[in-house]
Amino acid sequence: MGGDPIIASWLVYGCCGAVLVGLGLFGFMRPTTTLRRVLAFNIVGSGIFLLFGATGYRVPSTGADPVPQALIITGIVVALAATALAVALMLALARVSAGRDEDA
């Protein structure tokens, strides 16, 4: 089994998470279409969940700390719901602006 790796794996995940969050936020703020913003939103989300995972690992001894994992799962569900709503709204907007009005 290798000794201590050069850098702890949790640090790698942490940094990746941070980079993802930065990229996502940048993408979010750039003047782009809504679709791109929703994608950026997902990137930031996954970045944060990665961070959460990294924090979980840091606690030594009895293996990974279960709480962050629970939070990550909930987070993913919530992110999915938000994306679904965003896409639905974009479709409705497209349909409305194309002239056919929603049924009352």
Partner: peptide, 11 residues
Amino acid sequence: DGKREAIEAAL
């Protein structure tokens, strides 16, 4: 309401 400005506002 499903009107155009309502959906834009929602977005």
